[in-house]
């Protein structure tokens, strides 16, 4: 464990908590893409199956349980409890165009052709594009609440911090996973235009307006 990975995991946890609090306190999931949240739940489910038979550390196990519980909790809030506030008209990104290529790629490019490793690789590929429905929705609605942009900033920062963690581990000549690194770079690049808008607008108190 190093400071970059710890900050990355905490940033990820912060993003999930910001989202849960936003939905719970405002009793609304307006502006939030349920499809992205659905993809995140798939990512965690496919990646954390080793929860039951590989013990890395207490931290690792606890965080996996927290991420699984909060992602399904978010789905519950969005699709059941506050279903009436879910903006399905703007949440229309075709997620099958993300899931199917991720499955195909995981079958073609992986470290080990076993079920658990293929699922892990699938979750890595899917996570790198899972935010697209949310970014698409923000561009379609043309704007996002500031709380949603804080959520996106924390979520985008998590994988950016993981890149620093991989650089740090590279200097320590630790074993790295090229698949996770390439996917992590792609994932972070997808946030770049949002990061620019967030740093130049939201932090100056303006609303986040994405060019439609």
């Amino acid at each position: 464990m190093n400071i970059f990975r710890l900050l990355g995991d905490l940033s990820h946890l912060l993003a999930i908590i910001i989202l849960l609090l936003k939905i719970w306190n405002s009793r609304s999931c307006a502006g939030i893409s349920g499809r992205s949240q659905f993809l995140f739940a798939i990512v965690f489910t496919a990646r954390y199956l080793d929860l039951f038979f590989t013990f890395i550390s207490l931290y690792n196990t606890v965080m996996k349980i927290v991420f699984l519980a909060t992602s399904y909790g978010t789905l519950y809030l969005m699709y059941i409890k506050f279903k009436a506030t879910y903006d399905s008209n703007h949440d229309t990104f075709r997620i099958e165009f993300l899931i199917l290529p991720a499955i195909a790629l995981a079958l073609l490019i992986n470290e080990e052709f076993t079920v658990i490793e293929i699922l892990w690789t699938f979750s890595i590929y899917l996570e790198s594009v899972a935010i697209l429905p949310q970014l698409f929705m923000v561009s379609k609605t043309g704007e996002a609440e500031s709380i949603t942009s804080h959520y996106l900033f924390a979520l985008g920062s998590y994988r950016a911090l993981y890149i620093l963690n991989w650089i740090y581990r590279w200097f320590l000549t630790e074993k790295l996973n090229a698949i996770a690194i390439v996917a992590g770079i792609v994932q972070t690049i997808l946030y770049c235009d949002f990061f620019y808008l967030y740093l130049t607008k939201v932090l100056k108190g303006k609303k986040l307006q994405l060019p439609a």
């Binding site: 990820h12 890395i56 690792n60 080990e112 993981y162 996973n177």
Partner: peptide
């Protein structure tokens, strides 16, 4: 023995 790939990151 094929060394099992272990992913220690979240």
């Amino acid at each position: 023995q094929s060394f099992k790939v272990v992913h220690d990151e979240l």
